[in-house]
């Protein structure tokens, strides 16, 4: 029997389309319009062509921010993914302590970004913060407002503190879905702990780990609030990540044209990476992982 094709259900998607048009498509179109013009306010615009794109492509400022951004995302992924897996592997599998751990793990995820930023901003201060004061008392030269390395360590540790739980929870869900039969078979074969991880747990977690990597990458690539609250992009421009730089340009300096060109290129990079991740995930899905 042939299935009847009824495309009328698409009309049910219409409200979402209208909403997305207002919240995303129209603003994005406006950004495109801004990117080829110059303005001095008063809603008056002058044609500038591709000037802003050219200026942005040749400015060290954007490339430096992109470099810092990639470094930040790379470092936090390199820490959070293995750490999250490690935590998930060591979490109790059932009973009271399993639930206890789950609740404990999800706590950092519930805290709003700016609050996380404020917590760490105070925590790291040498005069009143527990971390800063302790390190200072131990003779460690730590001052995130003046020292680049200290600032970087602070924002990275903060991100790890905030988001490793997410990776751990996802990995934990992946681990829980592995049937006992796999472990029993491994036991019969006298497989080592490493081999159980390498050939059973890791392949079975692949799907959720891809989601974790995608989520963490996108989130960290667009991060704004937390580092902004802690370091404000400083010292100098040392922690000025892409979105911090973009906001400085658009709202601080009111350079709408260059900022629009900048944000479109930023958007294109994100679109490209999302597409790659999405494609990889869909293909993993087809292979049944």
């Amino acid at each position: 029997m042939e299935k009847t094709v009824n495309q009328k259900a698409w009309f049910l998607v219409l409200p979402v389309l209208v909403l997305v048009a207002f919240s995303a498509v129209i603003p994005l179109m406006t950004v495109v319009n801004y990117s080829v013009q110059d303005t001095f306010g008063q809603n008056q615009f002058f044609w500038a062509g591709l000037e802003w794109f050219e200026e942005m492509l040749r400015s060290d400022r954007m490339w430096d921010a992109l470099g810092r951004q990639l470094m930040f995302s790379g470092i936090i992924l390199a820490i959070e993914i293995p750490l999250g897996i490690f935590v998930a592997l060591n979490m109790p599998k059932s009973g009271f302590w399993a639930s206890f751990c789950l609740v404990l793990m999800s706590l950092p995820l519930l805290i709003p970004w700016n609050v996380v930023g404020t917590i760490w901003q105070i925590f790291g201060r040498v005069d009143i913060g527990l971390l800063g004061y302790t390190l200072d008392a131990l003779g460690v030269n730590y001052n995130y407002t003046q020292d680049t390395i200290a600032a970087w360590i602070t924002i990275i540790v903060m991100d790890v503190w905030h988001w490793t739980s997410l990776v751990a929870l996802l990995a934990y869900a992946g681990l829980k879905s592995i049937p006992d039969a796999y472990y029993q078979a491994a036991k019969i074969d006298q497989a080592s702990r490493w081999k159980v991880f390498r050939y059973i747990e890791l392949p079975k977690m692949m799907g959720v780990l891809m989601i974790a990597i995608l989520l963490r990458f996108m989130d960290s690539f667009m991060i704004y609030t937390e580092p902004f609250v802690v370091t404000g992009g400083g010292p100098g421009n040392a922690t000025t990540l892409l979105s911090i730089d973009l906001v400085k340009m658009a709202l601080g300096q009111f350079d709408l044209g260059p900022a629009a060109a900048f944000s479109l290129m930023y958007f294109l990079v994100i679109l490209l990476i999302s597409w790659v991740f999405y494609t990889v995930m869909v293909n993993l899905d087809k292979k049944g992982m």
Binding site: M29, N33, V36
Partner: peptide, 15 residues
């Protein structure tokens, strides 16, 4: 449409 700062080239691009 004024606030969207339309220009002909961008309009053609979207069209």
């Amino acid at each position: 449409m004024d606030w969207m700062a339309w220009t002909w080239p961008t309009a053609i691009f979207f069209m």
